[in-house]
Amino acid sequence: MPSTSEHPCLTCGACCASFRVDFSTMETQECGGSVPDGLVVPVTEHTARMRGTDHASPRCAALTGKIGVKAACGIYEWRPSPCREFDAGSDACQRARARHGMPVLDDPLAA
């Protein structure tokens, strides 16, 4: 478990290597949003996906570091809405952590 001064997401990264990340094309730089176009894969006319998240073993192209040790989003300020809405300690978070052999977060926001 990270120290009390460090948010658990700063050592985790499991969510970034567990799920497909789809979002509106309006969030891409090309359409006036902030998600860098080089990290986006078009899905439909209105849907984009973070590069790397649709692989059999997903890993977002924006994820840096080692999962469970020290991980970070390389585009944190410009990340898409599904990433902004993902909650530490949620059921999806706990599933992602389990997928990577990490323990459950007892109190994810006790920072």
Rank of each mutant, 00 (worst) to 15 (best):
9 C>V: 11
65 G>R: 03
84 R>V: 09
62 A>N: 07
95 R>C: 12
21 V>M: 03
86 F>G: 01
79 R>D: 00
16 C>M: 04
3 S>T: 13
84 R>H: 12
10 L>A: 15
13 G>M: 05
104 V>R: 14
76 Y>H: 09
8 P>A: 05
2 P>F: 05
19 F>M: 10
72 A>E: 08
34 S>I: 08
111 A>K: 11
56 A>E: 13
76 Y>I: 05
79 R>A: 03
61 A>T: 08
4 T>W: 12
102 M>I: 12
80 P>M: 06
91 D>A: 10
20 R>Q: 14
111 A>F: 11
95 R>A: 10
1 M>A: 10
30 E>W: 14
54 D>L: 09
67 I>T: 04
73 C>N: 04
44 T>F: 08
29 Q>E: 14
79 R>F: 05
34 S>C: 08
61 A>M: 07
30 E>L: 15
50 M>Y: 03
83 C>V: 04
33 G>P: 06
33 G>R: 05
64 T>R: 05
42 P>V: 11
24 S>H: 01
25 T>F: 10
92 A>F: 04
4 T>M: 15
91 D>C: 11
32 G>W: 02
32 G>D: 08
5 S>E: 14
33 G>L: 06
56 A>I: 14
90 S>Y: 02
71 A>Y: 10
100 H>W: 06
43 V>T: 08
108 P>W: 00
70 K>D: 06
33 G>M: 07
6 E>Q: 13
74 G>V: 11
36 P>V: 07
93 C>H: 00
9 C>E: 00
39 L>G: 02
29 Q>R: 14
81 S>D: 07
55 H>W: 15
105 L>C: 05
47 T>P: 14
74 G>E: 03
26 M>I: 13
34 S>P: 11
78 W>L: 13
97 R>Y: 02
54 D>E: 13
98 A>Y: 05
58 P>D: 07
2 P>Y: 07
108 P>H: 02
59 R>M: 07
73 C>M: 14
111 A>R: 11
111 A>M: 13
1 M>Y: 09
62 A>V: 06
84 R>F: 15
96 A>T: 02
82 P>L: 03
51 R>H: 13
54 D>G: 10
42 P>W: 09
100 H>N: 09
78 W>N: 11
102 M>E: 03
106 D>K: 11
7 H>K: 15
110 A>G: 12
83 C>Y: 00
93 C>W: 00
82 P>T: 06
24 S>K: 05
20 R>K: 13
94 Q>K: 06
105 L>T: 03
45 E>A: 13
47 T>D: 11
46 H>N: 15
91 D>S: 10
47 T>V: 12
24 S>V: 15
55 H>Q: 15
16 C>P: 02
95 R>D: 14
55 H>L: 11
27 E>N: 03
15 C>I: 08
72 A>T: 12
43 V>G: 02
35 V>L: 09
66 K>P: 10
90 S>E: 01
54 D>P: 01
44 T>Y: 13
29 Q>W: 11
16 C>V: 05
56 A>F: 14
62 A>D: 01
21 V>N: 01
61 A>C: 13
15 C>G: 01
